[in-house]
Design a protein around this nucleic acid. Sequence first.
DNA 1: TATGAAATGCCATAACC
DNA 2: GGTTATGGCATTTCATA
Lengths: 170, 170
Amino acid sequence: MTEFVIMVRKAMKSANLDSFDRKLLECVRRNNLEPARSLAEKVGLSESSVLRRLRRMRLEGIIIGDIALVDPALTGGAITMHVLVQLYNDGHIRTDAFARNMARREEVVAAWNVAGDEDFVLIVQVPSMEAYDAFTREELSEQSHVRDFKTLISIRPVVDTLISRRPLRA
Amino acid sequence: MTEFVIMVRKAMKSANLDSFDRKLLECVRRNNLEPARSLAEKVGLSESSVLRRLRRMRLEGIIIGDIALVDPALTGGAITMHVLVQLYNDGHIRTDAFARNMARREEVVAAWNVAGDEDFVLIVQVPSMEAYDAFTREELSEQSHVRDFKTLISIRPVVDTLISRRPLRA
DNA sequence: TATGAAATGCCATAACC
DNA sequence: GGTTATGGCATTTCATA
């Protein structure tokens, strides 16, 4: 118990990752079901050390989560859109409000506040064009603080850290 | 062995997911390290069935991968860029070649081939502006088939499905 | 063909050096 | 960080419907 507290304390301070940690992250980032034994010989460490390091990094929040990636086509988000949004810009109030709105929408898979001509980049996943149309009307067209937006329809994902680096299975 | 072939054959045909499958996906999508015993009582099935179904869905490609989510700020990718790329467009050859190049680069976290004025949307994570500069030189500026590209510097991520859906740990 | 139960074997865990 | 003993979990096999 005390040990745990110390571990977390140490965690908060900073994240010093040595080359072993980085190698491990590179591996589990692609496949987190790979046995420690296999990881051990890849990075040149013992099984115990591998497991200790992974557990530590999970406690420290360096590893944020462990998830299964589900084929997007089967989860209701068949169409992927990229949306570049420009707001009527003055102060952070509208920016924050817009960000909050986006966070509320199920369709918005990811969003960034960006610098430059555009203010936001959205990644939106919808089951149909009708759904996308509804989304843009409610959140963009009918919003007075949205100056303009541009939609890029995704033809296909060509890289996805998450997908292309997936483990090869037998 | 024969059983395996039958499994895959069946897999290719289509993906009929019953309510048990969907419940399981909803769980492992948030946390794929949860023991089958725990999943079993959640969805109302035996441990064996849970494991069988998960294995089947992994073979069928319904579950695309199993990965650890790593805090982007700690993986050397402190800066996130969005890059809109236009190629000199003719045929699919250059598009495919470009896609392959992007897939090779560690910095490219995600990339899509899109329709419209732009050809590609990239999400690039780099530790520094120097690293980004090097990336753009090698892959964009010095590439004759790249007509133009536009960089959007991410100020902050405001939505991230993957992160917000992370499992809660004790 | 899919399920649940039991035996086997692998893997993570924890307490050592 | 490495080694060993323990416990847990997945895998396999089998019986059943």
